[in-house]
Computed example of a mutant assay.
Amino acid sequence: MKTLLTAAAALLALQAPAFAEDLDFLLINDSSADLVEFNVSPASSGSWEDNLIDGGYLAPGYEIGVLIADGATTCVYDIRGSFADGSEAEDYGLDLCDLGEYTFTD
C-alpha cells in the first residue's frame, strides 16, 4: 500500500507544473481619465479577451486587484486599457507571474 501511495504522489508531483496558476496583481490608474475597459490576453492570442471591468470604471488615482484564473499555463500576457477620453494604451509580452502591479499613466 505504501508503494502505491508513493507512486501516486510522484505522479501528482510530475503533473503539478502543467496545472495553471492563478495570476493576481494590482492595477493602478495614474492617468488623468477614467479607465473604462481593461483587457488581458495571452501573448500568443490574436485577439483581446473580454473587458475585465465591464459595466464599471477605474477612476484616476485609484487601484484594484486583478485576478486572472483563465486556466492557461503561460505567464506572458498582453494588456490593453481604454479610457473615457478616447485614448488607449497597450503593453505586450508582460510576465504576469512576476508582476506585482501594473500602472497606466498619461
Rank of each mutant, 00 (worst) to 15 (best):
E21N: 14
C97Q: 06
N51K: 03
D106S: 01
E63I: 03
D54L: 15
P42W: 06
Y77V: 02
V66Y: 05
A7M: 09
Y57D: 12
N29F: 04
I28L: 07
Y102D: 03
G65C: 10
A89G: 13
L14I: 03
T73A: 15
L58H: 03
E88C: 00
T103P: 05
Y62W: 10
S87W: 07
L35A: 05
A43I: 00
K2S: 11
N29G: 02
A20H: 05
Y102H: 15
C75Q: 10
V36K: 08
D30A: 14
I64E: 14
A18H: 05
N39F: 12
Q15E: 09
A59V: 02
F19S: 11
T3I: 10
V76H: 11
E49R: 08
T73Y: 09
L4F: 11
V66Q: 12
S31W: 00
C75A: 15
A20V: 00
G86V: 00
A20W: 00
P60S: 02
A43Q: 13
S45R: 06
D30Y: 08
T74A: 09
D50L: 13
D98Y: 10
L27H: 04
G71K: 00
S45P: 02
S45L: 05
V40F: 06
A72R: 15
Y57I: 06
D106R: 02
F38T: 01
I68L: 12
G100T: 08
F38S: 06
D30K: 13
A18G: 02
L94M: 14
Y92I: 05
T74I: 09
E90G: 13
V36F: 10
I68C: 05
V40A: 08
D22I: 06
D85E: 05
G100W: 03
Y92D: 10
R80M: 11
A8Y: 09
I53L: 05
A84G: 05
T103M: 08
E90W: 04
M1R: 11
D24S: 15
S41Q: 06
E101D: 14
D22L: 04
A69V: 01
L67D: 10
G93M: 09
A10I: 12
L23D: 03
T3L: 14
G93D: 12
L5W: 02
R80S: 11
F19Q: 12
N39T: 08
A13F: 07
S47Y: 13
M1D: 08
V76W: 08
A72Y: 13
P60A: 02
Y57M: 14
D50E: 15
C97R: 03
A72G: 12
N29H: 00
S32A: 14
R80K: 15
S41P: 05
A7S: 13
L52G: 07
A84R: 08
I64S: 12
L96N: 04
S41F: 06
G56I: 00
S41H: 01
D22Y: 06
A9F: 06
D22Q: 14
T3C: 09
K2T: 09
G81E: 01
P60H: 07
R80D: 07
L52K: 10
Q15S: 09
